[in-house]
Every structure is written in C-alpha cells, then in structure tokens.
Simulated assay, not measured.
Amino acid sequence: MRGATKRTVGKLIVVVVAVPLVLGGCSSESSDWKDAQNKATPEALQEFLKRHPNGQFRQAATDRIGELAKKACGAADLQSCFDWGVSLRGGARPNGMSSSNDFERAIDPLHKACWGGNQGACSDAAKLLRMGTSTDLEASRALTYECRGGDQNACRMVVTKAKIGCDAAKADACVVLADHLRRGAGISKDEAAARGLYQKACNDAGFEENFWPCLVLSKMWRNGEGGPSNVAEAAKYKGIAETKFSNMMNKAAGLPVGSLRYSIGDLE
C-alpha cells in the first residue's frame, strides 16, 4: 500500500512539473509570434518559423511572408516577385512561404522577375508551364522563358518558330522575332530589322489591341535604335500605343471604346 502511494505521488509530481513546461513552450511561441508580427519583416517571420516550424502560428506566418512578398513585388522588388511567384506555384523554398498551387497567378510575378533579369524566375516560369497542359502554346511560352533564362538552344528554337509564323503573316510571331532580333537572342542582333517588324505589327489592323509593338517602336525612335532618332515619331507611336491600350482596357471593363483614356509608361 505504501509503495502504491509513492508511485501515485510520483506520477502526480511528473504531471505537475510537466504542465508548466508545456505552458512555458506555448508562452514562448506566443511571445515570439507577437515579436515577429511587430517587426513585420520577412526576415523576422522566417526566423520565427525556424524556431517554431510546427507551431500553431506556422500558417499565419507563411501567409504573412507571402503577403509581404506580393507587396514588395508591386514595388518592383524583383526578388520578391520571384518569391511570390514560387509561393503561388507551391514550390519548396527555404523561406517558409505558403503554397497555394495557383499556377496561373504564379506566372505574372515570375514573368515580371524574369523580364527584369532574374534567371531563376525564368526557369521557374518555364517549369511551371511544362507542368500544365501540353499544348503548343504552353510549350512555346516555356521556350520563351527558357531563352530569357539564358538557354541559347531555346532561343534558337523560338526564333525558328517565330520565322515560320512571321513568314505566314502572323503579327504576333513577327513581334516575337523582332524581340529576338533586337536583343540578339538566338539570332544575330539586327535592330533595323527589328524596327521594321515592330512597325509592321503596329500597323497591322488585325493586331489592333496589341499595344506592345507600338510602344517598343516608340522607344526605338526615341533612342535611335535601328535607325535615326526622331522625337516626333517617338511621340506618335507612344500615342498609338496608348490608344490601343486604352481600347483594350475599356473592352475588358465592358465600356465603349474611347470611354477612358489610359497613360502608359515604357513597360519594359
């Protein structure tokens, strides 16, 4: 009987000692979470996740990191665009970001980071497209991102396809070819030829809503790329680009053409 009493007391002591330890752990995590929230930086939140990888605030911390990356991406922080895109596509990154597997939405920030020179974003965008439906369009888009990421073989494949399309009078293919001629990617650099193709696409009636070739053409006239510099011509094509962009935005909003006028920057 006496032995049984000792065992019971021993168990009670263990329970009494263990409860404060558990409560202490919860208190520590709550305190760290409050501190990370107050600092509101990706670094502070990542440090919190390192300390409490399986804690009760894990999802809240990962979601908050994603929100901060999205906001920074909007402010033209290309690394944050990359991180936000990776977060959306559900990729594993050592920064604790959430994963919603939203493939389509992930392309936008990855595109922005890729076109800004982040080769990792180009590679991720290409991988993402190849994970989707295996259509010719998706394959072509993947090649474009791989080319932007420095894969010269991909660049040559893009140029080959673009030449075929442009020879068949497809304005979008001519724009792709012009982009590569202007950069010298997968083909010898030829700014004069690029300018001519942008001109052709800008004036194409069937390509009415695509403002991009007109905008690039404006920049080339302004900077003297592929020919003489002419401020008046640059302004003219900038105006055409803004008209096309405005028409596109009005149509998307269900408004009559000409309802609203939008101003655009270089977007490049």
Rank of each mutant, 00 (worst) to 15 (best):
P94A: 08
E47Y: 02
G186P: 13
V257P: 05
L137H: 05
P42S: 04
A235I: 13
I264F: 00
D63L: 03
E47I: 07
V16I: 15
E225T: 04
K244G: 05
L23P: 08
P109S: 05
G96A: 06
L21N: 11
A69I: 00
L68E: 03
L260Y: 06
I13K: 03
G10T: 09
N223H: 07
D190P: 07
G258H: 10
W212V: 07
L49C: 08
P42D: 06
L49H: 09
R261W: 00
A44K: 09
C147D: 12
R51D: 08
G265R: 13
W33K: 07
C81F: 04
A126K: 06
G224T: 08
R51A: 13
A171H: 06
G85K: 11
Y262M: 10
C147A: 06
N153Q: 15
G196H: 06
G66E: 04
K6H: 04
A121E: 09
R183A: 13
S229D: 09
C202D: 12
G258D: 10
A241P: 07
Q56K: 14
G132I: 00
H180I: 00
D266L: 04
V175Q: 14
G239W: 01
S188P: 13
I240F: 02
F103I: 04
S30C: 02
M1H: 14
S30D: 12
D266W: 03
E146H: 01
D179K: 10
A235R: 15
T144C: 00
V9L: 15
Q152V: 05
V231C: 00
A121H: 10
A40E: 11
N247K: 12
T133W: 01
R2H: 12
E47A: 14
T41F: 00
L267Q: 13
A162I: 11
T243A: 08
D172W: 00
D77M: 08
V216Q: 13
R183N: 10
L143S: 04
G116A: 02
G10P: 12
C155D: 11
L217A: 03
